[in-house]
């Protein structure tokens, strides 16, 4: 049974929005970026679903119980941990509607909004990981399907065990997620058992 996470809007990291939208910081780009961000008012929500598994790591394979992930880089990251959190996070479908509207209406604005969406979903992941850290103590960096040698096909397993459809997150046959501004990841958590509540 998975746990749900939601949070208030984290503070916007403007430098990251500029970086994701491939702009350099100057007076003009900052003003324009802020103007674009104001158009996303109300279109971003913050939801995640996660679960924790006991893991065994051996020979580049991480066994979580319900499934195993074959990836030397993931195994390397998790080898010091005995448990692992798997999560799926999204900023929601309204944001995709907004970006598709601006792709039609003002493609320049849409580029900045895409950067903003990327920053928002990463901030959501940061908030969730902060929460995991409070709960479990030491945690590893996050590691997503498609990074290094962790196959994108792992998405299928993650979706099977978390059912993130309940937070409005879906996987299509090309293993792309809808809404597009979504993240799935593994995070190693320290063995200390705690009481989890969401």
């Amino acid at each position: 049974m998975a746990f749900y996470f939601t949070c208030k809007a984290p503070e916007v990291n403007l430098s990251e929005v500029l970086r994701y939208s491939r702009q350099k910081k100057n007076d003009e780009t900052v003003v324009f970026t802020k103007e674009c961000i104001s158009k996303a008012n109300g279109a971003v929500s913050f939801s995640a679903v996660w679960d924790v598994f006991d893991i065994t790591v051996s020979g580049g394979v991480t066994d979580l119980g319900p499934f195993s992930a074959e990836s030397a880089s993931l195994a390397k990251m998790l080898c010091d941990y005995s448990r692992c959190v798997v999560f799926a996070a999204t900023i929601g479908a309204d944001f995709d509607r907004l970006t598709s509207l601006y792709e039609r209406k003002s493609p320049g604005t849409a580029v900045v909004l895409h950067g903003y969406g990327a920053e928002r979903v990463e901030s959501l992941c940061d908030e969730l990981c902060g929460e995991l850290e409070k709960r479990f103590g030491k945690i590893s960096p996050r590691f997503s399907p498609g990074y290094g040698d962790l196959p994108l096909g792992t998405q299928t397993d993650i979706f099977r065990i978390l059912s993130p459809e309940k937070i409005g997150l879906f996987l299509n046959s090309s293993l792309l997620m809808s809404p597009s501004k979504s993240v799935t990841a593994f995070v190693g958590v320290s063995p200390a058992d705690t009481s989890a509540s969401r």
Partner: peptide, 14 residues
């Protein structure tokens, strides 16, 4: 040449 960025290029195109 990196003096303006994609959003501005697109605004100009529009």
């Amino acid at each position: 040449t990196g003096r303006v960025f994609l959003p501005k290029l697109l605004m100009a195109a529009q």
